[in-house]
């Protein structure tokens, strides 16, 4: 929207749950495509970093030199939505897009994966079903990071400037409200996005 016209979304398709995110975005009527190159990232208003294996995706980002295009996307005030591994990639130890540190597989192995109903005031009264799969935990975060939801005191949905992150998988349920929220962020004025925006590095 920042550049006029309908919102174009791209889901990083290096590895992971990109297909599910594309499905949700398309159900919301958003034009969405897989992205795998700097040029493709350049062309989108909303960039989704999906779940998957963060080590695998981080290696692909390094191999394909996508770190700079992703950082430029955020520096320009465009919206980035990271879920699970995508959240890890945004932290201080990876791309440095939010002032937070994630601990990988913090709940344990698949045996400890769980589903839970989360209260998220920003999404209204009805709780959101959240699917945590080998999920990370946000161990610490700076003051610029706004916490939108917690589970057992741990922040699980956070926002800083134009970067929105969830430690779980909103793309695996039929409740599309968190994606709607990400799309709505694209319609905020540019200056508001850059205000608290990047970067934690």
């Amino acid at each position: 929207m920042a550049r006029g016209g309908p919102i174009r979304a791209g889901v990083l398709a290096a590895q992971g749950g990109f297909a599910a995110h594309l499905g949700v975005l398309r159900r919301l009527g958003v034009e969405a495509a897989e992205v795998r190159s700097g040029a493709e990232i350049e062309a989108v208003d909303l960039l989704v970093l999906p779940g998957g294996e963060s080590t695998t995706i981080a290696k692909a980002i390094a191999r394909d030199r996508l770190g700079e295009p992703i950082r430029r996307h955020v520096e320009a005030g465009r919206v980035l939505f990271g879920t699970c591994a995508g959240m890890i990639l945004c932290d201080r130890n990876h791309l440095g897009l939010i002032d937070a540190v994630a601990v990988r597989n913090a709940y344990g192995r698949q045996a400890q994966s769980f589903e839970v109903e989360l209260d998220i005031a920003a999404l209204g009264e009805r709780p959101l079903s959240a699917v945590f799969i080998r999920a990370p935990r946000i161990a610490e975060h700076g003051a610029a990071v706004e916490v939108l939801a917690r589970h057992d005191d741990d922040p699980v949905v956070v926002c800083q400037g134009s970067v929105l992150c969830a430690t779980f998988h909103p793309e695996l349920t039929d409740d599309l409200r968190l994606h709607e929220y990400a799309v709505a962020l694209c319609q905020r004025p540019d200056d508001e996005m850059k205000e608290s925006g990047s970067v934690a590095r």
Partner: peptide
């Protein structure tokens, strides 16, 4: 009130392996 071992969690992990080796 959390649930474990659901079919969504099972297929969910497979979803996260997509595009990978």
């Amino acid at each position: 009130m959390s649930e474990q071992g659901t079919f969504r969690l099972k297929t969910g992990l497979a979803e996260m392996l997509k595009g990978g080796v």
